[in-house]
Amino acid sequence: MQAQEPVDSQIQAIRRDADVISARQMGRRLAEDMGFGRPDQALIATAISELARNIVVYAGYGEIEVSVVRQGHRQGLRIVARDRGPGIADLGSALADGYSTGNSLGLGLPGTRRIVDDFDIRSTPGEGVEVTAVKWRRQ
């Protein structure tokens, strides 16, 4: 299920906690412009928060890209989180509830997966992580 390439996209570099807030706001604004309802806007903002927070905690430096994607008549908001950090050795565990190598609830990745419609994660240990998540707008 490959969505079409995005028409336009916005990028926020993630280096520190304050950037997490900026990325969130960027995503929320785009979601609002696209006509997502307020609950979905909050879900998108939360998903971005979780992904951006992971970048700050585990990789230290990366970026969040949000864009509009289309598939047939459907329109969706795509979030891509990229970093060049240490990567994830065990993707299976990282996606399980309550698993954390940091001191957290371990809900970041599995939680994000639950609140979006499409979720894809790629990681090569030593080379970083790329997470792609799409939330489709309800017709």
Binding site: R38, T46, L105, G111, T112, R114, I115
Partner: peptide, 14 residues
């Protein structure tokens, strides 16, 4: 907690 935040937190798994 706003309604939206509460909903997102529950979905995330809190």
């Amino acid at each position: 907690l706003s309604a939206e935040v509460a909903q997102s937190l529950v979905k995330v798994g809190v």
